[in-house]
Protein backbone atom coordinates (compact mmCIF):
# COMPACT_ATOMS: atom_id res chain seq x y z
CA UNK A 1 0.00 0.00 0.00
CA UNK A 2 2.77 2.39 0.92
CA UNK A 3 4.52 1.82 -2.38
CA UNK A 4 1.34 2.42 -4.28
CA UNK A 5 0.85 5.75 -2.58
CA UNK A 6 4.31 6.96 -3.51
CA UNK A 7 3.77 6.07 -7.14
CA UNK A 8 0.49 7.90 -7.11
CA UNK A 9 2.15 11.15 -6.09
CA UNK A 10 4.96 10.83 -8.61
CA UNK A 11 4.24 11.64 -12.28
CA UNK A 12 3.37 8.34 -13.89
CA UNK A 13 5.23 8.96 -17.11
CA UNK A 14 7.76 11.75 -17.28
CA UNK A 15 10.43 12.93 -19.58
CA UNK A 16 13.92 13.36 -18.16
CA UNK A 17 13.45 16.93 -17.09
CA UNK A 18 10.55 15.98 -14.88
CA UNK A 19 7.98 18.07 -16.66
CA UNK A 20 6.53 18.97 -20.02
CA UNK A 21 3.95 17.30 -22.17
CA UNK A 22 4.47 13.74 -21.07
CA UNK A 23 3.67 14.47 -17.46
CA UNK A 24 0.58 12.45 -16.65
CA UNK A 25 -1.05 11.58 -13.42
CA UNK A 26 -2.62 8.18 -13.18
CA UNK A 27 -6.07 9.66 -12.92
CA UNK A 28 -5.49 11.64 -16.09
CA UNK A 29 -4.92 8.44 -18.01
CA UNK A 30 -8.56 7.62 -17.35
CA UNK A 31 -9.70 10.64 -19.34
CA UNK A 32 -9.96 8.91 -22.73
CA UNK A 33 -12.05 6.16 -21.25
CA UNK A 34 -13.96 8.69 -19.19
CA UNK A 35 -14.87 10.53 -22.36
CA UNK A 36 -15.93 7.33 -24.03
CA UNK A 37 -17.92 6.30 -20.99
CA UNK A 38 -19.77 9.56 -20.68
CA UNK A 39 -20.63 9.92 -24.35
CA UNK A 40 -21.49 6.33 -25.14
CA UNK A 41 -22.69 4.91 -21.83
CA UNK A 42 -23.78 7.57 -19.39
CA UNK A 43 -25.35 9.91 -21.91
CA UNK A 44 -27.43 7.21 -23.65
CA UNK A 45 -28.48 5.93 -20.24
CA UNK A 46 -29.72 9.37 -19.29
CA UNK A 47 -31.56 9.55 -22.61
CA UNK A 48 -33.24 6.20 -21.96
CA UNK A 49 -34.35 7.39 -18.52
CA UNK A 50 -35.60 10.63 -20.01
CA UNK A 51 -37.61 8.91 -22.74
CA UNK A 52 -38.93 6.22 -20.42
CA UNK A 53 -40.48 8.79 -18.10
CA UNK A 54 -41.92 11.10 -20.74
CA UNK A 55 -44.87 10.79 -23.06
CA UNK A 56 -44.76 11.38 -26.81
CA UNK A 57 -45.33 15.09 -26.26
CA UNK A 58 -42.37 15.34 -23.89
CA UNK A 59 -44.23 15.74 -20.61
CA UNK A 60 -43.49 13.65 -17.53
CA UNK A 61 -45.59 10.51 -17.39
CA UNK A 62 -45.53 6.96 -16.10
CA UNK A 63 -47.86 5.79 -18.86
CA UNK A 64 -45.09 3.83 -20.61
CA UNK A 65 -44.67 1.63 -17.55
CA UNK A 66 -48.36 1.20 -16.86
CA UNK A 67 -48.87 0.35 -20.53
CA UNK A 68 -46.19 -2.31 -20.29
CA UNK A 69 -47.51 -3.94 -17.16
CA UNK A 70 -51.16 -3.89 -18.17
CA UNK A 71 -50.69 -5.49 -21.60
CA UNK A 72 -50.74 -9.30 -21.28
CA UNK A 73 -48.63 -9.64 -24.43
CA UNK A 74 -45.75 -7.75 -22.86
CA UNK A 75 -45.85 -9.60 -19.55
CA UNK A 76 -46.09 -12.92 -21.37
CA UNK A 77 -43.06 -12.03 -23.45
CA UNK A 78 -41.16 -11.08 -20.32
CA UNK A 79 -42.07 -14.37 -18.64
CA UNK A 80 -41.16 -16.34 -21.77
CA UNK A 81 -37.85 -14.47 -22.01
CA UNK A 82 -36.87 -15.32 -18.44
CA UNK A 83 -37.98 -18.92 -18.86
CA UNK A 84 -36.16 -19.38 -22.18
CA UNK A 85 -33.02 -17.73 -20.78
CA UNK A 86 -33.18 -20.14 -17.87
CA UNK A 87 -33.53 -23.18 -20.12
CA UNK A 88 -30.75 -22.06 -22.44
CA UNK A 89 -28.46 -21.32 -19.49
CA UNK A 90 -29.07 -24.72 -17.94
CA UNK A 91 -28.46 -26.56 -21.22
CA UNK A 92 -25.31 -24.52 -21.86
CA UNK A 93 -24.04 -25.26 -18.36
CA UNK A 94 -24.78 -28.97 -18.59
CA UNK A 95 -22.94 -29.25 -21.90
CA UNK A 96 -20.12 -26.82 -21.16
CA UNK A 97 -19.06 -27.98 -17.73
CA UNK A 98 -17.87 -31.45 -18.77
CA UNK A 99 -16.19 -29.93 -21.83
CA UNK A 100 -14.39 -27.29 -19.79
CA UNK A 101 -13.46 -29.85 -17.14
CA UNK A 102 -12.01 -32.32 -19.63
CA UNK A 103 -10.16 -29.57 -21.50
CA UNK A 104 -8.64 -28.21 -18.31
CA UNK A 105 -7.47 -31.67 -17.23
CA UNK A 106 -5.88 -32.65 -20.53
CA UNK A 107 -2.19 -33.49 -20.09
CA UNK A 108 -1.38 -32.58 -23.67
CA UNK A 109 -1.61 -28.81 -23.61
CA UNK A 110 -1.32 -28.48 -27.39
CA UNK A 111 -4.32 -30.70 -27.89
CA UNK A 112 -6.21 -28.71 -25.27
CA UNK A 113 -5.33 -25.51 -27.07
CA UNK A 114 -6.54 -26.82 -30.42
CA UNK A 115 -9.78 -28.14 -28.92
CA UNK A 116 -10.41 -24.89 -27.10
CA UNK A 117 -9.80 -23.02 -30.32
CA UNK A 118 -12.46 -25.14 -32.01
CA UNK A 119 -14.95 -23.99 -29.43
CA UNK A 120 -13.89 -20.35 -29.50
CA UNK A 121 -13.34 -20.05 -33.25
CA UNK A 122 -17.03 -19.59 -34.19
CA UNK A 123 -17.30 -16.55 -31.90
CA UNK A 124 -14.91 -14.69 -34.17
CA UNK A 125 -17.53 -14.82 -36.90
CA UNK A 126 -20.50 -12.54 -36.58
CA UNK A 127 -23.42 -14.26 -34.89
CA UNK A 128 -25.91 -13.19 -37.56
CA UNK A 129 -23.90 -15.06 -40.18
CA UNK A 130 -23.63 -18.06 -37.89
CA UNK A 131 -27.37 -18.02 -37.32
CA UNK A 132 -28.01 -17.98 -41.06
CA UNK A 133 -25.66 -20.91 -41.59
CA UNK A 134 -27.25 -22.78 -38.71
CA UNK A 135 -30.70 -22.27 -40.24
CA UNK A 136 -29.59 -24.02 -43.43
CA UNK A 137 -28.01 -26.78 -41.39
CA UNK A 138 -31.19 -27.34 -39.39
CA UNK A 139 -33.33 -27.52 -42.50
CA UNK A 140 -30.81 -29.99 -43.93
CA UNK A 141 -31.08 -32.18 -40.83
CA UNK A 142 -34.85 -31.83 -40.97
CA UNK A 143 -35.57 -29.86 -37.82
CA UNK A 144 -38.39 -27.44 -38.67
CA UNK A 145 -38.27 -23.80 -37.60
CA UNK A 146 -39.95 -23.15 -34.27
CA UNK A 147 -39.25 -23.16 -30.57
CA UNK A 148 -36.92 -26.17 -30.64
CA UNK A 149 -34.88 -24.68 -33.43
CA UNK A 150 -34.67 -21.38 -31.53
CA UNK A 151 -33.39 -23.09 -28.39
CA UNK A 152 -30.80 -25.01 -30.43
CA UNK A 153 -29.72 -21.80 -32.12
CA UNK A 154 -29.43 -19.91 -28.85
CA UNK A 155 -27.47 -22.70 -27.15
CA UNK A 156 -25.16 -22.94 -30.13
CA UNK A 157 -24.55 -19.22 -30.14
CA UNK A 158 -23.99 -18.72 -26.44
CA UNK A 159 -22.09 -21.90 -25.58
CA UNK A 160 -18.61 -20.34 -25.99
CA UNK A 161 -19.51 -17.68 -23.44
CA UNK A 162 -20.15 -20.44 -20.94
CA UNK A 163 -17.11 -22.56 -21.79
CA UNK A 164 -14.56 -19.73 -21.54
CA UNK A 165 -15.12 -18.63 -17.92
CA UNK A 166 -15.54 -22.22 -16.77
CA UNK A 167 -12.35 -23.25 -18.47
CA UNK A 168 -10.34 -20.35 -17.12
CA UNK A 169 -11.52 -21.04 -13.57
CA UNK A 170 -10.88 -24.75 -13.80
CA UNK A 171 -7.42 -24.38 -15.33
CA UNK A 172 -6.33 -21.95 -12.64
CA UNK A 173 -7.66 -24.09 -9.82
CA UNK A 174 -5.01 -25.39 -7.46
CA UNK A 175 -4.98 -29.12 -8.16
CA UNK A 176 -3.41 -29.92 -4.81
CA UNK A 177 -6.83 -29.46 -3.18
CA UNK A 178 -8.21 -32.30 -5.25
CA UNK A 179 -5.12 -34.41 -4.58
CA UNK A 180 -5.42 -33.76 -0.86
CA UNK A 181 -9.08 -34.75 -0.90
CA UNK A 182 -8.43 -38.03 -2.67
CA UNK A 183 -5.40 -38.71 -0.44
CA UNK A 184 -7.70 -38.39 2.52
CA UNK A 185 -9.95 -41.06 1.05
CA UNK A 186 -12.61 -39.16 -0.83
CA UNK A 187 -14.05 -40.99 -3.81
CA UNK A 188 -13.80 -39.39 -7.24
CA UNK A 189 -17.41 -38.28 -7.05
CA UNK A 190 -16.89 -36.85 -3.59
CA UNK A 191 -13.80 -34.96 -4.73
CA UNK A 192 -15.79 -33.43 -7.53
CA UNK A 193 -18.85 -32.50 -5.49
CA UNK A 194 -17.05 -31.13 -2.44
CA UNK A 195 -13.88 -29.67 -3.91
CA UNK A 196 -13.94 -29.06 -7.66
CA UNK A 197 -17.52 -27.87 -7.99
CA UNK A 198 -17.46 -25.37 -5.09
CA UNK A 199 -14.11 -24.02 -6.21
CA UNK A 200 -15.39 -23.46 -9.74
CA UNK A 201 -18.41 -21.50 -8.52
CA UNK A 202 -17.05 -18.12 -9.67
CA UNK A 203 -16.68 -19.50 -13.18
CA UNK A 204 -20.21 -20.89 -13.13
CA UNK A 205 -21.65 -17.60 -11.90
CA UNK A 206 -19.81 -15.60 -14.50
CA UNK A 207 -20.78 -18.04 -17.26
CA UNK A 208 -24.39 -17.94 -16.18
CA UNK A 209 -24.47 -14.14 -16.22
CA UNK A 210 -22.84 -14.05 -19.61
CA UNK A 211 -25.49 -16.36 -21.04
CA UNK A 212 -28.64 -15.62 -19.06
CA UNK A 213 -28.72 -11.84 -19.55
CA UNK A 214 -27.80 -11.56 -23.24
CA UNK A 215 -30.22 -14.34 -24.22
CA UNK A 216 -33.16 -12.35 -22.85
CA UNK A 217 -32.56 -9.41 -25.14
CA UNK A 218 -31.55 -11.47 -28.16
CA UNK A 219 -33.75 -11.00 -31.20
CA UNK A 220 -31.88 -11.73 -34.41
CA UNK A 221 -31.43 -15.38 -33.53
CA UNK A 222 -35.05 -15.96 -32.54
CA UNK A 223 -36.12 -14.05 -35.65
CA UNK A 224 -34.09 -16.44 -37.78
CA UNK A 225 -35.13 -19.67 -36.11
CA UNK A 226 -38.59 -19.15 -34.71
CA UNK A 227 -40.54 -19.35 -37.95
CA UNK A 228 -44.12 -18.33 -37.35
CA UNK A 229 -44.95 -20.49 -34.34
CA UNK A 230 -41.83 -20.07 -32.21
CA UNK A 231 -41.43 -17.65 -29.36
CA UNK A 232 -40.09 -14.10 -29.50
CA UNK A 233 -38.04 -12.63 -26.69
CA UNK A 234 -38.24 -9.23 -25.08
CA UNK A 235 -35.38 -8.00 -27.29
CA UNK A 236 -37.71 -8.32 -30.28
CA UNK A 237 -40.28 -6.16 -28.51
CA UNK A 238 -37.66 -3.47 -27.86
CA UNK A 239 -36.40 -3.68 -31.43
CA UNK A 240 -39.92 -3.33 -32.76
CA UNK A 241 -40.54 -0.27 -30.59
CA UNK A 242 -37.41 1.48 -31.84
CA UNK A 243 -37.28 0.32 -35.46
CA UNK A 244 -40.98 0.14 -36.24
CA UNK A 245 -42.05 -1.64 -39.38
CA UNK A 246 -44.07 -0.54 -42.36
CA UNK A 247 -47.41 0.49 -40.94
CA UNK A 248 -46.54 0.07 -37.26
CA UNK A 249 -45.51 3.19 -35.35
CA UNK A 250 -42.09 3.79 -33.85
CA UNK A 251 -42.57 4.00 -30.08
CA UNK A 252 -39.37 5.36 -28.64
CA UNK A 253 -40.85 6.10 -25.21
CA UNK A 254 -42.32 2.64 -24.81
CA UNK A 255 -39.08 1.08 -26.04
CA UNK A 256 -37.05 3.11 -23.54
CA UNK A 257 -39.35 2.02 -20.72
CA UNK A 258 -38.93 -1.67 -21.63
CA UNK A 259 -35.17 -1.16 -21.86
CA UNK A 260 -35.18 0.37 -18.41
CA UNK A 261 -37.17 -2.56 -17.03
CA UNK A 262 -34.62 -4.90 -18.61
CA UNK A 263 -31.83 -2.89 -17.02
CA UNK A 264 -33.41 -3.28 -13.60
CA UNK A 265 -33.73 -7.03 -14.15
CA UNK A 266 -30.07 -7.18 -15.12
CA UNK A 267 -28.91 -5.25 -12.07
CA UNK A 268 -31.03 -7.44 -9.80
CA UNK A 269 -29.61 -10.58 -11.42
CA UNK A 270 -26.08 -9.26 -10.98
CA UNK A 271 -26.75 -8.50 -7.33
CA UNK A 272 -28.21 -11.95 -6.75
CA UNK A 273 -25.28 -13.71 -8.37
CA UNK A 274 -22.76 -11.44 -6.71
CA UNK A 275 -21.49 -10.25 -10.05
CA UNK A 276 -20.39 -6.93 -8.62
CA UNK A 277 -18.25 -8.51 -5.91
CA UNK A 278 -14.62 -8.75 -6.79
CA UNK A 279 -13.60 -11.84 -4.92
CA UNK A 280 -10.13 -13.31 -5.29
CA UNK A 281 -11.28 -16.47 -7.04
CA UNK A 282 -13.44 -14.71 -9.52
CA UNK A 283 -10.74 -12.38 -10.72
CA UNK A 284 -10.44 -12.45 -14.46
CA UNK A 285 -13.49 -14.62 -14.98
CA UNK A 286 -16.13 -12.18 -13.93
CA UNK A 287 -17.45 -9.48 -16.17
Amino acid sequence: MKGAKIIKKEPFITDNKGGGLLKFKRSQLCIPYGLFLSVFVIFPLLLIIYYAFTSKTGTFSLSNFTAFFTEPTNISTLIISIFVSFIVTVICLLISYPVAYILSRLKNSNLAFVLLLLFILPTWLNFVLRAMAMKELLSFIGIPLGSTASIIGLVYDFMPFMIMPLYSTLIKMDKSFEEAASDLGASKVKVFTSVTLPLSKPGIISGVTMVFLPVMSCYVITDTFSGSTGFSLIGKLIAKCFLGENGAPIQINEGAAISLIMLVIMVVTMLLTGGFKNSENARGTNL
Binding site: P72, T73, I80, L237
Partner: peptide
Amino acid sequence: TLDKINDMWNRVKFITFPVWIIWTIV
Protein backbone atom coordinates in the same frame (compact mmCIF):
# COMPACT_ATOMS: atom_id res chain seq x y z
CA THR B 1 -56.85 3.00 -34.74
CA LEU B 2 -53.16 2.57 -35.42
CA ASP B 3 -52.51 1.72 -31.75
CA LYS B 4 -55.32 -0.83 -31.78
CA ILE B 5 -54.04 -2.48 -34.94
CA ASN B 6 -50.53 -2.50 -33.54
CA ASP B 7 -51.64 -4.12 -30.28
CA MET B 8 -53.60 -6.70 -32.25
CA TRP B 9 -50.51 -7.43 -34.33
CA ASN B 10 -48.38 -7.81 -31.19
CA ARG B 11 -50.88 -10.31 -29.84
CA VAL B 12 -50.55 -12.28 -33.06
CA LYS B 13 -46.79 -12.14 -33.25
CA PHE B 14 -45.86 -12.63 -29.61
CA ILE B 15 -47.12 -15.54 -27.56
CA THR B 16 -49.72 -14.19 -25.14
CA PHE B 17 -50.79 -16.11 -22.05
CA PRO B 18 -54.29 -15.74 -20.62
CA VAL B 19 -54.37 -13.32 -17.72
CA TRP B 20 -54.96 -16.01 -15.07
CA ILE B 21 -51.78 -17.82 -16.10
CA ILE B 22 -49.82 -14.59 -15.77
CA TRP B 23 -51.22 -13.99 -12.28
CA THR B 24 -50.44 -17.58 -11.28
CA ILE B 25 -46.86 -17.25 -12.47
CA VAL B 26 -46.43 -13.88 -10.80
